[in-house]
Design a protein around this nucleic acid. Sequence first.
RNA 1: GGCUACGUAGCUCAGUUGGUUAGAGCAUCGCACUCAUAAUGCGAGGGUCGGUAGUUCGAAUCUACCCGUAGCCA
Length: 673
Amino acid sequence: MSRQILVTSALPYANGPIHLGHLVEYIQTDIWVRFQRLRGNRCIYVCADDAHGTPIMLKARELGITPEELIERIGREHQQDFADFLIEFDNYYSTHSEENRYYAELIYQRLRDAGHITSRTIKQAYDPVENMFLPDRYIKGDCPRCGAAEQYGDSCEVCGATYTPAELRNAVSVVSGATPVDKESEHYFFRLQDFGDMLRTWAGDGHVQGEVANKLNEWFEDGLREWDISRDSPYFGFRIPGTEDKYFYVWLDAPIGYMASFSNWCEQHGEDFDAWWRPDTDTELYHFIGKDIVYFHALFWPAMLEGAGFRKPTRICAHGFLTVNGQKMSKSRGTFIMGRTYLNHLNPEYLRYYLAAKMGSSVHDLDLSLDDFIQRVNSDLVGKLVNIASRSASFINKRFDGRLADHLEAPELYRTVTARGEQIARHYEDREFSRAIREIMALADEANQYFDERKPWVLAKDAETLERVQLICTQTLNVFRVLMTYLKPVVPRIAARAEAFLQIPEQTWSDATEPLLDHTIGRFEPLATRVARESVDAMLEESRETLAPKAETTPTGPLADNPIAEQIEIGDFGKVDLRIARISKAAQVDGADKLLQLTLDLGGETRTVFAGIRAAYEPADLEGKLTVMVANLKPRKMRFGVSEGMVLAAGPGGKDLFILEPDNGAEPGMKVK
RNA sequence: GGCUACGUAGCUCAGUUGGUUAGAGCAUCGCACUCAUAAUGCGAGGGUCGGUAGUUCGAAUCUACCCGUAGCCA
């Protein structure tokens, strides 16, 4: 009976684009999932955007949009990037969903009813200007140990000290610049320590890698503590049932997002959710994650599931980080590469192949060495593997009308290749992809050696030996076909092209056992082209351009005081309706020492606008002038009347204000764009 | 600072419980071949296995310390 396997990758955070570091995980997971399907197992792969938390709330605010709009937009980008890297999810969802709210509340309530939730009042840094509690990362100040400036509230990047925000000197809120104050608030906690015995047993039982188990032991020895799962308003997330202004901490509902996404898939496919999630299920659950989030997946998550009466994961597969050219990805070196930037220049399957060729089951970091990448992809994929088909097909196409022979020239070679299949499958299963690839390429070497020994190009010159050429090429094409099937989880598109060229249906792993004989194949077209160094260079260049700090020279003047704001989309600009207006009347406002009341003619429509430019302009000097106004600004009630828009002016303020005037020819009412 | 990994040929990596002259791929050099996307085959050079000190008949492998890199410390 085939296995039923539910697989997840960690949920990418919905505040920024996917970069190559993310892709290590999705590619690793996708290869494993495709392998399982190829073997005939039922394998469901779900993921979602992680859409909650303070960073998303603030990012949306910064962009002037709602968090919902932000996560919708980022979610779309993420899905497009994944699709283009051939990541084949069964479902991609969002933690900001009704299913996720349902399961978050359900798990919380079950944990609470079983006595695993407590609450107490804690003191926390609070921004008195923004009226919000500040996560450690949103407080900056001087390190209490080494004095380094601009350090975050939890640790010093210069000397490595860890501390609490309260210990930071000259602390300021990153959000408002205000000095944080301590404020009390009631928080809810999950009693992780209730699950200590269960977790020790579980972790020692092969559900995590050895290195991870070591790390867990360290935590066990330190003693498990309760986990703060609530955050105060304002917060973008789910409100905790039974409270007015408490929200689930984003890390509480993020892993529950796996369930939510799967539940959503179940609804679409008439599948029974509980059959997969009840404690005694015989389905499997695999979570692929980065080593940085082991804590959440190997401690909190199994404890939450256990406490709420659900099954626990079969296996947590943690991987290391990606380095580029041996170093941390760096924006200034151009090695902080977004998935999209890569796709603009290079074929996604090459990254899949290269990473697979170096990826094992350990938590070691993985290096993308770009020189090695070019050489490896070109020599393995093109020079070795595709070359087998290329050099054989030319004979079959030209001399035998595309027809394969009815038997093999060297059945023992074919058997060698198929006999290796189970070993290769074991490597895939164990997520030892680099070993699988090494085996496959060693077999490709054998096929090329075989071809060289038989010298079909010599045999083809003599009519008497011509028949053997067909046998030899039939032999190598059969090896090629099997190797391509073995490689299908890694390079699905090249494999599909190979199937089209051989004119065979979609192959599964077991199709390898029978050779393809007495069969007509199609014309050979290059299945993969070489990586050009220029493409890699262009990718680095684009990464540098889009991400490196723009100017070398420090800006002076207005730019220094008021740096250019974050980039916006053209659509964002389009929302602002700017119009030419004639100032038909300007008057002082009684009781206001900064304002002038302007009557603006928009060409048929007049508007009253209060502008803070009294110190800079005499009313008489303004009358008759053309200027630019924001025409669709929501009217705002002021003490002296309603202001129906605003006029544009430059300058720091006071006497130094300069209103905008259009060039000659502009007329009231014209749109500025 | 504590802890956990890691440091093996120019590059990227294997080296299972310590055991014969330390391996692979790529790169380099020589030769062969010309069917193939200048692809392929055969052969060669290249390493005091981060350093030091130990345990042992024997250490890349075990121990201690040091140096370097990465990560974790809720």
